[in-house]
Simulated scan of single mutants.
Amino acid sequence: MNWKTDLRASDLDADMRLELTCRLCGAVRSLPAEAILARRGGAMLYLDQVEARARCRQRGCNGPMRLALLRTGDASGFVGGIA
Score class of each variant (00 low, 15 high):
1 M>E: 10
2 N>E: 06
67 L>T: 00
53 R>S: 14
31 L>A: 05
1 M>T: 05
65 M>R: 07
9 A>F: 03
57 R>N: 13
3 W>S: 11
2 N>H: 10
16 M>H: 07
40 R>H: 09
43 A>I: 04
56 C>H: 03
71 R>V: 11
6 D>C: 13
80 G>H: 03
83 A>E: 09
76 S>W: 05
81 G>M: 10
2 N>S: 14
27 A>V: 01
47 L>R: 00
67 L>C: 04
17 R>A: 08
17 R>F: 11
8 R>V: 05
25 C>K: 08
11 D>A: 14
34 E>D: 14
68 A>N: 09
8 R>H: 15
24 L>R: 14
72 T>N: 10
6 D>M: 12
36 I>N: 01
41 G>D: 08
79 V>I: 12
24 L>W: 02
16 M>W: 03
19 E>Y: 01
51 E>Y: 09
64 P>V: 12
28 V>M: 09
54 A>I: 03
41 G>Y: 06
34 E>H: 15
40 R>V: 00
72 T>R: 12
59 R>W: 04
68 A>W: 01
23 R>Q: 15
82 I>Y: 04
42 G>I: 06
11 D>Y: 00
65 M>A: 02
65 M>Q: 15
70 L>R: 13
7 L>M: 10
59 R>I: 02
37 L>P: 00
24 L>I: 10
6 D>F: 11
82 I>G: 01
1 M>Q: 10
38 A>L: 09
82 I>C: 03
1 M>K: 11
37 L>A: 12
75 A>Q: 13
83 A>Y: 06
43 A>W: 04
62 N>I: 00
10 S>W: 02
18 L>T: 09
58 Q>F: 04
10 S>V: 13
81 G>Q: 12
34 E>N: 13
2 N>W: 08
55 R>F: 03
13 D>V: 00
55 R>Q: 11
52 A>L: 06
56 C>Y: 08
78 F>R: 04
7 L>Q: 04
28 V>T: 15
8 R>C: 12
25 C>H: 06
79 V>E: 07
36 I>E: 02
62 N>V: 13
6 D>H: 06
3 W>F: 08
1 M>H: 09
27 A>L: 00
44 M>K: 08
9 A>L: 07
47 L>K: 03
62 N>Y: 07
